[in-house]
Design a protein around this nucleic acid. Sequence first.
RNA 1: GGCGACAUAGCCAAGUGGUAAGGCACGGGUCUGCAACACCCUUAUCACCAGUUCAAAUCUGGUUGUCGCCUCCA
Length: 472
Amino acid sequence: MENKMQIFNTLTRTVENFVPNEDGKVAMYTCGPTVYHFAHIGNLRSYIMEDVLEKSLRYVGYDVKRVMNITDVGHLSSDADTGEDKMLAGAKREKKTVMQIAQFYTDAFFADCEKLKIKRPDVVEPATNCISEFIEMIEALLEKGYAYVAGENVYFDTSKLDDYYAFSSQTEKELMIGVRDDVEEDTNKRGKSDFVLWFTKSKFDNQELKWESPWGVGYPGWHIECSCISMKHFGEYMDIHCGGVDNIFPHHTNEIAQSEAYTGHKWCNYWFHVHHLNDKSGKMSKSKGDFLTVSLLEEKGYHPLVYRMFCLQSHYRKPLEFSYDVMDNMENTYAKLRKSIAGLNEDTAFEPDQFAIYKEKFENAVSNDLNTSMALTVVYEVLKAEISDNTKLALMRSFDEVLSLDLTAGALETEDAGIDAELEAYVLAKIEERKAAKKEKNFARADEIRGELLDKGIVLEDTREGVKWKKA
RNA sequence: GGCGACAUAGCCAAGUGGUAAGGCACGGGUCUGCAACACCCUUAUCACCAGUUCAAAUCUGGUUGUCGCCUCCA
């Protein structure tokens, strides 16, 4: 098929025509969450945009197979052996076993994804499912001379590669490593950029998850899992690898090092990186302790899809600053949009030519390096266009295959589920009373009733569809 | 210290050489007993300086500011 998708490739730092290895098919890999805690909405920004990428590829006609790993072992808070395993730290914090933690937060992650309409990848693979594959690959790397054993751990020898820093320019290379002074060094390493493939020795010996290996009882390093899991499901080639920008170095750099050393050839052609969600003080991060989750947004009264729309109106390669002001803005935008679409009359003629015109506009926006902001503009363009409501509805349904904003699900419910039956009965009675007063043109009484309800925290609105009420 | 990204109206944001999309908010108006809803109208010369060009938000150089990466991070 013809090249329909243009996408920024971190490897070349340019927007390229996307050409998959196999015509019409896309092998797409996503670095999944480390399931030691809830995902914060910054994490979820990446998954939302990757979801849009997957759906856009499908929209323009590709057959996409998507794989995601779940990091449930091996992700240290530092690569030096002084670090603490994230999973173990989570388990300690909550007095549960590591596997209980992993299961709990994996479920929580997918629950959040569901709320945000993020499609579950075709394959979801926990790292702990693939220990034998990790061991096989590490053995092969040792055999080929790309790895060495030191201090009872296995390390990858980055000096064996001509081009370890796949994502960096030549001038950066000499300066990258070990500049940060808060980094503690692992003295077993031959080179500063070497990294661990398999641990048997570390300072946290109470590690719960350990496996037999040719190098002793231990557990895998973080980077090896993505290389192995992708090859388990895609073989030695894949098309797009996704993740947040913070994964570029070292995680993705190390993945490329291992994978290409192992296969002896180019591994993945396109690297898709989503930029960070920041707040006023900078990057949102779990290690700062305080972070925002989807549940928290819901508690504050925001529909999860308001956050999705917040992400879509920005570009994935721009840092995005989160604020409640913008969320409030977006909340209005989203409610108005849903309401406007809900008012369309399906019982009108369908105009295939018009449908095709706007569908192409939308496709162009989305295939231009995921210009989601422009895609949303096309939504508004359609709603304002001189075409039949039924055509508009068909277009909304079509666009929603990518946007996943529940565009045609009707107006947003304003009734608050938290209101108890007694209050509801009272409110409904008052509404009837007010209706009667209005009928008798007793507007003073009608306004009085509205005031009474307001005192109880209930706001009345006379809309075209009848009286609506909600919590203030 | 090195590397990189970004800087467009009150806010979010598109636009990569031809005279500034869209959304929200504000203001004005129509409608309705009022309010709200809905609908209509209105709002910028693109951080700063210099240069290239017939023409620059868009290219080049510099300045300032914000942010990110340099083995915890999506």
